[in-house]
């Protein structure tokens, strides 16, 4: 007889109860279930819902190689010093061609593998950005319901397209490092705007001062320069600056009062809904052919209707609802 859970043969409420009791194998299996989506996922999340909303969700993003995973490893240690439990969702990209992925962020977090207060899960981005937000937020809900007090989400952010982490996290930290010209470019492309906390990692590198100066002047130029974004220096590999980062994260979180958190949750829901609804409409449209849609397409092809007008007309009609 085995106690290893097999989702498909279990009721959602059984599995949910085990997740809420903190059973690791059940948490692991529940994550696979919600990641896959579909009906089993929906049922499970419903059963878990009342236990969610307690965890603090921290997003860590930044260009490839700036030291995000190393920083997360150091943060885990810091949080564990304060006896807080920590979950990590470490996202790495899937190959758009084969769908495969090498998930290597754990390499920098091995110190905490056997700690019962730490749960690390690697997630492949599995295709488009929107899907990633959805999967990540579901996985975060499972970890939240399991009673983990902090959920850290690491994603690669290289510009506008990858800032999904803000769809999921309460507090977003953007990490950069010296010597990556592209990194500053990425900041310009929108990452800076989503940062609640900014970190220049690899502060042991003499060029770090330059990066800090650049960022400071960019912050000063921002339209919302009144919003004070803390800018910190860390050397994650040597655990330098980590207590200060943890303090900054705590403060940023505390600034989000109850109302602020509720508001952010609604904003997140709105973004998720937009992404998912957009996906559904797109999928249906691509699979549908009908008389009225054909008319629309023909008029577009003939140049009588521009795409935007056609799209608005389409959404007002019920063409896309036809199965």
């Amino acid at each position: 007889m085995s106690v290893r859970p097999a989702v498909e043969s279990w009721g959602a409420s059984d599995l949910a109860a085990r997740v809420r009791a903190g059973n690791r194998a059940s948490i692991a299996r529940a994550i696979s279930t919600v990641e896959a989506g579909g009906k089993a996922s929906a049922e499970l999340l419903k059963a878990l819902h009342e236990a969610t909303g307690r965890a603090r969700l921290f997003g860590i993003t930044g260009a490839p190689g700036v030291g995000k995973s190393t920083l997360v490893g150091a943060l885990i240690a810091e949080l564990r010093n304060g006896y807080q439990s920590v979950a990590v969702i470490a996202v790495d990209p899937s190959s758009p061609v084969t769908g495969g992925a090498i998930l290597g962020d754990r390499v920098r977090m091995t110190q905490h593998v056997e700690d019962d207060g730490v749960f690390i899960r690697s997630l492949a981005s599995r295709g488009s950005g929107g899907g990633l937000s959805l999967a990540t937020s579901r996985v975060a809900e499972v970890l939240d319901a399991a009673g983990l007090e902090n959920v850290i989400i690491e994603t690669v952010g290289a510009g506008q397209s990858e800032i999904d982490v803000i769809d999921v996290a309460d507090i977003t930290t953007v990490v950069c490092a010296p010597g990556l010209g592209d990194d500053i470019q990425a900041m310009k492309a929108g990452l800076l705007e989503v940062a609640d906390v900014l970190v220049v990692n690899k502060a042991d590198d003499p060029m770090a001062t330059l990066t800090v100066n650049q960022l400071e002047s960019m912050l000063a130029l921002r339209s919302d320069a009144g919003r004070k974004v803390p800018l910190l220096k860390t050397a994650a590999r040597d655990a330098v600056g980590i207590p200060e980062l943890a303090d900054a994260l705590n403060q940023a979180f505390e600034k989000l009062d109850q109302q602020g958190r509720a508001e952010r949750r609604l904003q997140r829901m709105q973004r998720l809904l937009a992404t998912v609804a957009g996906g559904i409409v797109a999928r249906r449209l691509k699979a549908t052919r009908g008389r009225r849609l054909d008319q629309l397409l023909t008029r577009m092809a003939a140049g009588e209707l521009d795409v935007e007008t056609a799209a608005v007309a389409l959404l007002k009609s019920d063409v896309w609802r036809q199965d």
């Binding site: 084969t98 495969g100 998930l103 754990r106 091995t110």
Partner: peptide, 16 residues
Amino acid sequence: VAAYLRDAGMEVIYTA
């Protein structure tokens, strides 16, 4: 081997 499996569409959790 990790690269082989990734190229075959699998998700490889790679550890130190």
